[in-house]
Design a protein around this nucleic acid. Structure first.
Lengths: 211, 211
DNA sequence: AGCGGCGTGTAATTTACATTACAGAAAAGC
DNA sequence: GCTTTTCTGTAATGTAAATTACACGCCGCT
């Protein structure tokens, strides 16, 4: 019906039901991330989102259904902004990789990522599907884009990388490293700054002859 | 009554109360690690340990007190077997470090460590003291023994390590890396084998001229 | 205007625990 | 052996939350 839309049909005014649904998802997401899944009651969510408990049950079936709906929304989000374009710049590969590391580190240390990771881990025993789905949506893409890049470098002689996938995982380990565990354990402010990050990359860069 | 044993003051027969205490701690630890703290009921613990709910309350005050007692027992355990002696062998430093990495990796991937870490993270929002205490008892020592070793190597010209502590954290990151997150998220069997571990150490070893 | 759903607010219902109370059994100390 | 203190089993008590039921008001449709 809409005259023109490129992505994600923006025109239609969204039915009340759909706006309710979004509001509930927003509130639930915020509260789950802030307090954890178990410690957040459905009544609290509804109080914050407006609407009523009955509607929530009508939309999502039960509490776990709500969680899955959130997970699936995250997945869509992640898929809709697929990758940062890493080629096509005038930077050296070294600078490119450093920039990537900095951004990846920022991404991982954002309060939202940390909360997400914490929730994922907390629920992984109870609801394995939820945990696996989130994990795949969020982390596998990161590894893959990096390993594609490395493979390309290796193929064109810009680096000597025998196993691009292993190298990608190694790089992510170096970047995420123990900081993630620190943070998840509740010690904030323990992340690497860009200087230490660059220092950490040195062995990697020289070993794989990235220039 | 045993004729001879060396450590851990063996003689006294342990009062009933002390045996009860230990039994409750054992059962609680097992159940907490297996199911998580919140999902384990005190009744369940008592059913498994023997004894009665009233005794549990008498000994630990409440559920959180029980958790703290467990944490403090872990701390004592960790402190009582302080470090693996890393010097005094006829191995090369490279072999030494590889061996250390392998053992550290094994330690981290043991079901008990994983469960512990998961519980720590799950409870870190609710009970920050518990999380911090565990984290310090278990991880800081690992970093410290390694960084001491590196400092020694640097001082005696066996390696060119400008910042031993940073190097120690880097090494642990390389070893633990993303595997820990994989595992915490519920994907088992994603740990590095010794071969990949050695591969990962190469850049580190050559960069710091460890021989 | 009137009708049929749908969303809302409120309040039952149910369940699962933490926590407490208590009466009898067992153990410890003398 | 007797007393006192400490366990044990079981049954309240109280609370928090998920889930359901229900009666009412609002909105779009004809």
């Amino acid at each position: 019906m809409q005259p023109s839309d490129l992505l994600d049909c923006p025109m239609e005014p969204l039915s009340l039901r759909e706006r309710r649904r979004d509001a509930i998802l927003d509130a639930a997401e915020a509260l789950f991330l802030e307090q954890g899944y178990e410690r957040t009651s459905l009544a609290e969510i509804v109080k914050q989102s407006g609407g009523s408990l009955a509607t929530l049950y009508d939309l999502f079936g039960n509490k776990q259904g709500l969680l899955h709906a959130i997970a699936s929304r995250w997945g869509n989000e992640a898929r809709s902004q697929p990758a940062e374009c890493m080629a096509m710049t005038d930077l050296s590969n070294v600078e490119l990789l450093k920039g990537y590391a900095h951004r990846q580190c920022d991404r991982m240390r954002s309060p939202r990522s940390v909360a997400l990771m914490r929730m994922l881990i907390s629920e992984s025993l109870r609801d394995r599907d939820f945990a696996l789905q989130i994990y795949r949506d969020l982390h596998i893409p990161a590894t893959e884009e990096l390993s594609t890049l490395f493979a390309e470098w290796a193929a064109t002689g810009q680096a000597e990388i025998d196993d691009p996938e292993a190298a990608a995982k190694l790089l992510l380990s170096i970047v995420i490293g123990d900081s993630m565990l620190h943070t998840l354990a509740g010690l904030e402010n323990e992340w690497l700054d860009n200087e230490e990050l660059d220092w950490r990359l040195q062995p990697f860069l020289s070993h794989f002859r990235i220039i």
